[in-house]
Design a protein around this nucleic acid. Structure first.
Lengths: 195, 195
DNA sequence: AAGTTATGCAAGCAGGTACTTACTTATATA
DNA sequence: TATATAAGTAAGTACCTGCTTGCATAACTT
């Protein structure tokens, strides 16, 4: 993640991820990467063998799929609104850190199926975490009787929809900020799911 | 939209949209389209001039961005749950009909900026419609005081997030059906926004 | 029957792209 | 100072892809 503008490898991988995200793999030429990185084209091949090696290295460098599970369970306060806010912010952070890689995984399902699997771990993990949490809250009598998996997914979908719309359409549809979105999202779920 | 398997134009455009959606514009070759369509490659050029013409024609044929505004205002019952369900189902229909084109617009922002604008009309229209509806409901005392634009966007983002996740990850993350999603989405908003 | 129209087929051209090779230049280290 | 290491330069090869041309064939129209 740390990118030293004097390090050749870093310059190359940054240029690669940037162009991949913008144009897609097929439309990103090794020449264009070399120019963007301010490096000779041969250097790419000397460092990474071939184009596929380059792409792989770039994706690895710029993806960071953490295990949200452990750290989170400790922070739980059993106050629905507070906890949802924490989940929300953490999810947004992960999405933001992995923004480029997520967009690439969307564009290149056909050619990078392993990446899709890797990225799918993010919602899968969060879903498990939320369902466990919702079930516990129900037992405590702090949440209405509802389909916890469906509500967990609704939470994920809402935030993912926001993220991906923002990444593509920008503020073309609405000028709501990320903070306003999170605030209203949490309020909705808290009010909708509290007994 | 109606595709006659005996009509050459239809066969070509169907093959084009299919491959474009799967592989992206750059990776979709005219040779591959010809094979998929069961047609000679020259025929493509005779019918549509060049590759760009082909892509344009395919996108036009398979996109259908309706004006949801008029028809809907008449169907409103001023029962939050019923109306949200109607909005939800209508939105899902529009997304499904335009699925391929939406995926393409995501992949090809760089090369088809006009398409992005066209697709952005869908959420923009729905947002306006929902905000108007929510404001009216508030005046009737049938909705809590809240940021109506934020809640309208939350509704859109949740459904869009569902749609796009389903289109990419399939049931990789959850096996919830579309119907279950809609049901729980509507319940959440109805309970969260009713006074 | 004659002609128009739609399509197939074979070949090829021009430009681009991934990748290679051989040689030179600069920098850092010993 | 001598040597190893990293990078630049120039040229070229093999393949792919969009697109064209010329001709053959079948079907439909008048």
């Amino acid at each position: 993640m740390d990118c030293n503008p004097n390090d050749t490898d870093d310059k190359i991988l940054l240029a690669t991820i940037t162009l991949m995200t913008k144009k897609g793999i097929k439309a990103t030429t090794t020449r264009a990467i070399a120019v963007e990185a301010g490096v000779n084209e041969v250097t790419l091949f000397r460092h990474f063998g071939n184009k596929a090696g380059l792409m792989k290295a770039a994706v690895e460098k710029f993806s960071n799929v953490p295990s949200m599970t452990k750290a989170f369970k400790e922070k739980i306060t059993w106050d629905l609104e507070k906890d949802l806010l924490a989940f929300c912010e953490a999810y947004h952070d992960v999405l933001t850190i992995n923004q480029d890689v997520i967009i690439i995984s969307f564009k290149e399902v056909d050619v990078l199926p392993e990446l899709e699997q890797e990225i799918a771990k993010i919602p899968r993990q969060l879903k498990i975490l939320l369902v466990e949490y919702f079930n516990a809250m129900q037992e405590k009598g702090k949440m209405i009787s509802t389909n916890t998996e469906a509500q967990a997914m609704n939470f994920i979908w809402m935030n993912f929809g926001f993220f991906i719309s923002r990444a593509r359409f920008g503020d073309n549809v609405t000028e709501l900020t990320s903070d306003e979105m999170i605030k209203n999202c949490v309020q909705l779920f808290a009010r909708g799911l509290t007994p």
